[in-house]
Amino acid sequence: MSGCPARYDDELGYWVVDDPVLAREVLLDPRTFRPDNAVLAHTPLSVKALRVLSGVGFALPPTLANNAGESHRPIRAAVARFFSPARVAAVEPLARELNTTRVAAAKTALAAGQQVDLVQAIASEPPALVVLHLLGLTEVDVPALKAWSLDSLELFWGWPDEDRQLELAHSAAEFYAWLRSRTKAARETPADDLFGVLVGLGLSDEEVCAVGYFLLIAGQETTTQLISTAFQRSLGKVVDPAETVEEVLREASSVPTWRRVTAEPTTLGEVEVPAGAPVLLGLSGHGGPADLAFGTGIHRCLGAGLARMEARVAVECAAELVAGARLVEEPPMIDLLSFRAPKRLLVVTDGNTGDN
């Protein structure tokens, strides 16, 4: 079946669709190809991990990415207002300031002969700070949010063994407990931030936490990963920032795949698939348009415009630094079912040995 638009992958356990035209058709047909499995754990969770999660009331009811019901539209509309084109444009100066400050510090370190990790030094925190600003959230431990995000991505889209699952579950439980505390505070003191708006919709605590859980991950960690890949592709080159971002989205997006499940027997291309068949859609790297990296249809990424802007600004601000830098080592990768990017980009400038 190697030449077919859809094939069953025994190792992954999914019907894989790499053809971008067919992937788009699937995304535009949420009745047949439901999003119910979008945020399920790829590797079934152990009893011990589930106990840790249940201890904090962890639940991910249908809200955004995994919601095919009537509640999807009002929840999406409420969240979308935080990411309007006008708000994204207004926050660009903040993104530029955050990147400029970090690039300057990295340049100083490199000039002193030090090694610099471009991911941690520049790409990591600005997307989190920007999305928290847009969502009206203050007093957030950003390093903790970054750690929670990476752990949760691995827990739900990775291949952790039982011991690793237990570690990741403790991290996810800590994140969820924080979300519960913010939800409780929003009920006691209403505000015009993310939690206040969701509470105002009449959502349950579990629904508010479910929105917050993945929005606070997807709203910043995937952008960090997009920027990291753009930096990797720009090393030693003079690039056009906007073109580089679009190239990465087309060829090596931080979210290269996404999941659906069939509601009934149907066809993928000319391949018959049964009801309940898990489907893995290739969004990037298969000759499709850059925009497909953000999905399409009713579940298209709400932060597409924000991610593009932040990645462009990051590459613009770091262009001179990255053009004069070289890798010290082959980058270790975040390599999950639906997330891929360099975990670290350790560099020095030409003329430095990196031994200091």
Rank of each mutant, 00 (worst) to 15 (best):
G3V: 10
G3T: 10
C4H: 15
C4G: 09
A6D: 02
E11S: 14
D18T: 11
V21R: 15
V21K: 09
A23F: 04
F33V: 08
R34S: 15
R34H: 00
R34N: 03
P35W: 13
P35A: 13
D36T: 09
S46D: 10
S46H: 11
V47C: 03
V56G: 02
P61G: 12
T63P: 00
N67Q: 04
G69V: 08
S71F: 08
H72M: 12
H72T: 08
H72D: 09
P74M: 01
P74I: 04
A80T: 12
S84G: 07
P85W: 11
V88S: 02
A89E: 06
V91P: 07
R96G: 00
R96W: 01
V103M: 06
A105S: 07
A106E: 07
Q115S: 12
V116Q: 03
Q120Y: 09
I122E: 01
A123S: 05
S124I: 09
L129A: 11
L129S: 10
V130G: 07
H133R: 05
L135M: 05
G136S: 14
L137F: 06
L137E: 03
E139I: 01
V140G: 00
P143H: 07
A144C: 07
L153D: 12
E154H: 10
P160A: 13
P160L: 13
P160T: 10
E162I: 11
Q165A: 03
Q165D: 05
L168N: 03
A169E: 07
H170S: 13
S171A: 15
A172C: 09
A173S: 07
F175V: 02
R180Q: 10
E188Y: 06
P190K: 00
P190F: 05
D192P: 04
F195G: 10
S204A: 14
E207R: 11
G212D: 08
F214H: 14
G219C: 12
E221C: 03
I227G: 12
T229C: 01
A230L: 04
R233P: 05
V238K: 15
P241S: 01
A242T: 11
A242S: 13
T244N: 04
V245I: 13
R250D: 10
E251T: 15
E251Q: 12
S253W: 14
R259Y: 02
R260K: 01
R260F: 03
R260C: 00
V261P: 05
A263F: 10
P265G: 02
T267Y: 08
L268Y: 00
A277H: 13
G282T: 03
S284P: 04
H286D: 05
P289H: 10
P289Q: 10
G295I: 08
G295R: 07
T296Y: 05
I298M: 14
R300G: 04
L302M: 15
A304N: 06
G305P: 02
R308W: 00
M309C: 06
E310P: 01
R312F: 04
A314E: 06
L321P: 03
V322Q: 06
A325G: 03
V328T: 10
V328F: 05
E329F: 00
P331W: 14
I334S: 06
I334E: 06
L336D: 01
S338K: 13
F339C: 11
R340Y: 04
L345F: 13
V347M: 13
G351L: 12
N352D: 14
N352K: 15
T353S: 13
N356Q: 09
